[in-house]
Design a protein around this nucleic acid. Structure first.
Lengths: 213, 213
DNA sequence: CTAATTATGCAACCTATGTTACATAACTAT
DNA sequence: ATAGTTATGTAACATAGGTTGCATAATTAG
């Protein structure tokens, strides 16, 4: 864990804070698909991402989902942080998009470190700032873009986050993330295939060139 | 200003912090419609709302707008805060929805007070938390609701924020806020009128009962 | 008072996206 | 190999909401 921590956060935090993290945090590895947080959960520790990616989802009253954004190495779940501090229930669901390594910080430390370490304050504010910007991009996407553009962005983002050009997803799963229907996604994917941007297969999509469009 | 400050923030901040605010902040009154922040602005001070309401808007590349949420008494523009701290450009536009009274804090104080006062830290975190939740509601609205439901929520929220049942808006203005078209909004408003929920007039809408639907 | 401007009403139409239904292909388990 | 299950393809259709065009009412300017 020590090596992992220094790798991802070594330049961000001062030595003394790193020591405190090592002393109080726990290390955790979760496999792809692992559900880290469910809507309504009370969260008792705050995750720092060391490697992998986590997708953050929103759900409406009918159980319809929407992908909000991904968390990556060096980031933290700001919403969880907010929940921890306020002792509120989680507003979102968090699922490991890939195999993921995490450092879990007990919430008691939050308040203490915020008072004590400038680097921690900066990190926390930076996290909030990033998260708000991600949410703004989500709003932009849903409010201003058509489904074909959203799908394209979704594929690009997924390639980036998973760092592979073979996306192991069914059309149905993509439809859930984009809050659309399977038929619509199949239709749009077929269009992209005809343009030569992707190749469709059962259970996976091979990305050729998403900048053709 | 002192009275205004104690009125809105007296229970929130300790006496010493209140004194520091009084010493370094400036007081500002702006009329309805006043543009406080434009997208791309560098922001040099952080507003604390004393009375009135501010609407926060997002814009896409084509100049299309979307209302994100309102700021009210006792709240602060978290995005501005984020901008200040990171020396970044504003991602949003802020316009006074009603006549509004503000206390402007110079950004240099932010870092200092965050280290020094727990009540300030709590306030800042609480603000971030609230703003993220507002943004989530915006995402919900845009992603999961139809235009008729969004319009209804818009009217309800506007009644609440402006504290009057006479909404002085043209259909075009509402259309801008909801990122829709004038014709669509007129159509849906007419439906609400036929249900007896509202009364349509030139330049204003009289709200009768929005819970009929 | 008249002309110009602005807000609203409304019909006709278009399109993106969602829905239903069914066929077929590709896997999985027995 | 066979049957069942899951993923994909595709057509036909439904609908919310966006667009165009124009009429009319209300307001303002000259």
């Amino acid at each position: 864990m020590i090596q992992e921590l220094k790798n991802s956060y070594g330049t961000l935090f001062e030595e003394e804070l790193l020591q405190e993290i090592i002393a109080s945090a726990t290390y955790k590895e979760v496999p792809e698909g692992f559900k880290l947080i469910e809507i309504g959960d009370y969260v008792k520790s705050m995750p720092l991402l060391v490697s992998g990616a986590i997708k953050i989802l929103r759900e409406d009253t009918d159980g319809d989902e929407l992908l909000l954004y991904y968390l990556e190495k060096g980031e933290t779940c700001t919403m969880t942080m907010a929940c921890c501090m306020g002792q509120k229930k989680s507003e979102i669901r968090a699922i490991a998009e890939t195999d993921t390594k995490l450092i879990m910080i007990p919430i008691e430390k939050m308040e203490v470190w915020t008072a004590k370490y400038k680097s921690w304050r900066d990190f926390v504010f930076e996290s909030y700032h990033n998260r708000i910007n991600e949410l703004l991009l989500t709003v932009d996407s849903v409010a201003f873009l058509n489904m074909d553009e959203r799908l394209l962005n979704y594929l690009k983002e997924k390639v980036r986050v998973t760092n592979t050009s073979i996306l192991k997803n069914t059309h149905q799963e993509i439809a859930y993330d984009l809050h659309s229907s399977r038929v619509v996604i199949s239709r749009l994917l077929k269009k992209l295939e005809k343009l030569g941007s992707i190749e469709l297969h059962r259970n996976y999509i091979k990305i050729l060139d998403l900048n053709k469009v």
